[in-house]
């Protein structure tokens, strides 16, 4: 039954209507990368990719996670279809974790598509010559799970969680990594950057303010091991607490209580 819950959720999230939007995003990413390369022609491909990846891909990841995580539960509550799902003989923790995994997989595919488009624009061909591609792909998988479990947990506890998740994605994850001291440790993005291990961009050779912003967003001194340990811990804690919370609390169709 678990495999069906997964497949059903995956097919639901991966519908053509949604896929189409993310294909457009990938095309937009490709065009934006081309436009940037024309302007900053002197940058090395590594610097260009690193900058665009920090500025675009790793901003897009929490946004996609916020959108798809809402489909795990919030959307079912809003659409009142939750009642059909929760009166079936499926253990609630299993149900929640399986659907979270399905939504994370969709996020990985969508953002993976944009990563390939960006890489192809910078390195030519299918972009497979990009030495940072697979590091970024791994970071995207970890990020999709980390953001996914965190946002699902938020949606279990908070009404209208999408607003909170989008604020986190745009405001928190954009500003906190560039803050001084050790406050950047409170951002998921910092740990993903550590896992990706992209190099710092050499701002002395050009690139201008975009490179400086990208550096602030995308590099830090954290070792990859720390990134892995914190992210695995976050995924396990958010996933575990979420499953426990979902098992023990009521979820009724919104605006339907007598």
């Amino acid at each position: 039954m678990t495999s069906y819950v997964f497949t059903n959720a995956f097919m639901e999230y991966f519908r053509m209507k949604r896929l189409f939007v993310w294909i457009l995003v990938a095309i937009g990413m490709y065009l934006a990368a081309h436009a940037y390369l024309r302007v900053a022609g002197s940058d090395s491909p590594g610097d260009s990719y690193s900058m665009l990846s920090s500025l675009l891909l790793f901003r897009l990841l929490p946004l996609a996670s916020a959108i798809f995580s809402s489909a795990v539960l919030s959307q079912e509550i809003e659409q009142k279809t939750i009642v059909y799902l929760l009166t079936r003989p499926i253990p609630r923790p299993q149900f929640l974790i399986t659907r979270t995994l399905a939504s994370s997989l969709v996020v990985v595919i969508m953002i993976g598509l944009s990563t390939l488009a960006l890489s192809a624009a910078v390195y030519g061909g299918f972009g497979l010559k990009n030495p940072y591609l697979w590091h970024d792909m791994v970071a995207i998988v970890v990020g999709a799970l980390a953001y996914g479990t965190l946002f699902v947990l938020v949606s279990l506890i908070v009404n209208r969680a999408m607003i909170v998740c989008l604020l986190f994605a745009f405001a928190w994850e954009t500003s906190v990594p560039s803050m001084g001291g050790s406050i950047y440790l409170l951002s998921i993005s910092s740990y993903l950057t550590a896992i990706a291990q992209r190099p710092s961009i050499d701002t002395s050779t050009g690139g201008g303010p975009l490179s400086a912003i990208a550096n602030a967003l995308g590099t830090n001194t954290l070792p990859a091991d720390t990134g892995w340990a914190v992210m695995i811990g976050l995924i396990l804690i958010c996933g575990g607490v979420g499953a426990w919370w979902f098992k023990n609390n009521e979820y009724l169709p919104r605006e339907d209580a007598e």
Binding site: V83, L86, P89, I90, P91, K247, N248
Partner: peptide, 11 residues
């Protein structure tokens, strides 16, 4: 939230 109950209950 009891799957055993949902096996014998239609809603």
């Amino acid at each position: 939230a009891n799957p055993e109950v949902y096996k014998k209950l239609g809603y």
